[in-house]
């Protein structure tokens, strides 16, 4: 009892109502917390919400004449910027290159990571730890630093081995997306019992190739999908490597277009942002589905 009165004295309203009644006290604290919660979340969402909203208004209202129109959006969806005096060809080539880069990067990333992660998961704890260290290393080495070292490599690649086609940026991008993809795949590997699946399939006479393609991959596809989505959204937003190596991609094109027509480039950025939201929401849904299937704990053999 004494305990309750001391703590009640800090909240005068509790004292007046019913001194030292724990449920009331809690109710008041919960009420206060709810106010604090609303204030914090409102202020944060305002700060985070205003710039995208401004982007939308900016694309609809011409900044100099103050005229409202849908022209920038029309220009994007009809692929014809002549009404606004803008040449959109750079934008389309940048977008095309970035989409190609997404596909190439995802393929390289899956080919590199999935087999080695599966085998390390089954066979060697130590190898798994080494792979984790290597795969998360790009977080410690900033892209701007990596680009300094990649410069000579790409100079050599473009003159002696391949070409200066921007699609070869996929080699560098596979490194940039590695930490994110690695985490997504790790979650998938840990959510199924790889070892039991392998032993069962092997003792039933399946070859390793069969185990990998017919047993493990069907159980890992969700995490492979979310690793791919993460990689796509990283590649679509990449600017540092492409611009410093002098290659074209979506962000470089957006930057160049921004110098001549800021409305169209802002509209395109908003679309890219929406696409990013779409990708990440699907990842959220996928991981939700993975959680549920793990709770049911029935890996489909």
């Amino acid at each position: 009892m004494a305990v309750n009165t001391t703590s009640a004295s800090h909240t005068p309203r509790a004292a007046t109502r019913q001194a030292g009644a724990p449920p009331q006290l809690r109710a008041i604290r919960v009420h206060q917390q709810r106010i604090i919660k609303t204030v914090i979340l409102t202020v944060t969402s305002l700060f985070l919400g205003i710039p995208p909203l401004s982007m939308l208004i900016f694309t609809l209202r011409h900044p100099l004449s103050g005229r409202w129109s849908l022209d920038p959006w029309k220009a994007i969806f009809t692929a014809d910027g002549s009404a606004l005096g803008a040449d959109l060809s750079t934008l389309w080539s940048g977008l095309g290159i970035s989409l190609g880069l997404c596909m190439a990067t995802v393929v390289i990333m899956l080919l590199l990571l999935v087999p080695v992660m599966v085998i390390a998961h089954i066979r060697s704890k130590r190898l798994e730890r080494i792979i984790e260290w290597v795969a998360t290393l790009p977080l410690t080495i900033p892209a701007i630093v990596l680009v300094v070292g990649l410069g000579p490599i790409y100079r050599w690649l473009s003159t002696d081995v391949l070409s200066s086609n921007p699609i070869w940026l996929c080699f560098a991008y596979a490194i940039l997306v590695m930490p994110y993809a690695f985490r997504a795949l790790t979650v998938g590997l840990n959510s199924i019992d790889v070892l039991t699946l392998c032993e069962t399939a092997r003792s039933l006479g399946a070859s390793w190739a069969r185990v990998f393609f017919r047993v493990l991959l069907p159980n890992l596809w969700q995490s492979m999908l979310s690793a791919s989505f993460i990689s796509i959204s990283v590649v679509l937003g990449e600017y540092t490597v492409a611009s410093l190596l002098g290659r074209m991609n979506l962000q470089v094109a957006l930057y160049q277009l921004g110098q001549s027509n800021s409305q169209i480039s802002t509209a395109m950025s908003l679309l890219a942002l929406l696409f990013g939201v779409l990708l990440l929401v699907s990842i959220d849904l996928i991981s939700g589905a993975m959680r549920r299937s793990k709770e049911n704990n029935q890996p489909c053999l």
Partner: peptide, 11 residues
């Protein structure tokens, strides 16, 4: 990156 810069320039 570029898109964030655009967002704040628009703001």
């Amino acid at each position: 990156g570029v898109m964030l810069a655009f967002a704040f320039i628009a703001t």
